[in-house]
């Protein structure tokens, strides 16, 4: 029996996707609006994209955001991977369950609290707030996400692979970089991507920890919107959506290609045995 999807399924799918994507589609369409008024459609134009290119403030904010995201994601990935290794491999050290609980805590902590506490810390220590404080704040909360992602991969990692590397003469560090890291690399990369996007779209923590001269794009957009939505903002957001979409599609395509190749290889190996 080969029935298509029922009407109920089709309706719920349409409604669901409309909820998710209609606002985004509207935003993209309005970014091409010729008029200044956001609510009135005056015809197609790329005018706001051109104007965006000469808006130094927005471009500067974008540049700060990308720098913060790249730096914080990279450091968070290193620290998060180390934390995951310690939690999975450290054996039963004293206070281990406390530590693993503490790694998860920031995941559920409201951003406002994380932001406020970091602000208090920076004030108490006497750091001048700006680029570095935002970066540090982002490292703090995104490394937990990395740790969780890498930890789940490490749990299923066959420890005898590392032992085999050591047995064959590789000291522990060498064994890690030659064997463990390449195998868990997809999880580490996923952790980096997650940290990068978290940093990219964080508003709350960034606004707590920012200072003069370091305005990130979300902060900029938020403050601009308070003065009225300008089509320029729509254009910025459309570009962001475009970047994210391309990234997601590229990642899933390469995963799919790898999977297909692996299946084909396994089929060939099986066929070779049967012969």
């Amino acid at each position: 029996m080969n029935r298509g999807p029922s009407w109920f399924n089709i309706v719920s799918m349409v409604v669901g996707f409309a909820f998710l994507y209609l606002p985004i589609v509207l935003l993209v369409i309005y970014s091409f609006n010729a008029g200044r008024n956001v609510a009135v459609w005056e015809g197609w134009s790329t005018r706001w994209y051109v104007e965006l290119m000469s808006n130094d403030q927005l471009l500067a904010a974008a540049w700060v955001t990308i720098r913060v995201a790249l730096l914080s994601a990279t450091i968070a990935t290193i620290l998060g991977t180390m934390a995951a290794l310690a939690l999975v491999r450290g054996g039963l050290f004293y206070g281990r369950s406390l530590f693993s609980g503490m790694v998860y805590a920031p995941l559920v902590m409201p951003d406002v609290i994380t932001g406020l506490s970091l602000l208090l810390l920076f004030v108490a220590v006497g750091f001048s707030r700006g680029f570095w404080t935002i970066t540090m704040a982002h490292i703090t909360f995104s490394m937990c996400f990395v740790a969780v992602v890498v930890q789940s991969r490490l749990i299923s990692f066959d420890k005898s692979l590392e032992e085999a590397a050591m047995d064959l003469g590789a000291p522990p560090m060498k064994a890690f970089f030659a064997v463990t890291l390449p195998i868990i690399a997809p999880a580490v990369a996923a952790g980096w991507m997650l940290a990068f996007t978290l940093s990219l779209d964080d508003l709350v923590i960034a606004s707590f920890t920012t200072g003069p001269g370091a305005t990130t794009l979300p902060i900029k957009i938020y403050s601009a919107v308070r003065l009225g939505v300008s089509p320029e903002i729509n254009a910025v957001c459309t570009i962001l959506i475009g970047i994210v979409t391309i990234g997601v599609i590229a990642a899933s395509l390469s995963m799919k290609r790898k999977e297909v190749r692996r299946r084909r290889d396994e089929r060939m190996a099986a066929a070779a045995n049967a012969a």
């Binding site: 066959d158 005898s160 692979l161 032992e163 085999a164 590397a165 050591m166 047995d167 064959l168 003469g169 590789a170 000291p171 064994a175 064997v179 195998i183």
Partner: peptide, 18 residues
């Protein structure tokens, strides 16, 4: 340490580097 011992082991799971 294991990496300085002149013995080698064949693991039950083979532990081939994938």
């Amino acid at each position: 340490p294991p990496y300085r011992r002149p013995v080698n082991m064949m693991f039950q799971s083979y532990a081939l580097f994938p």
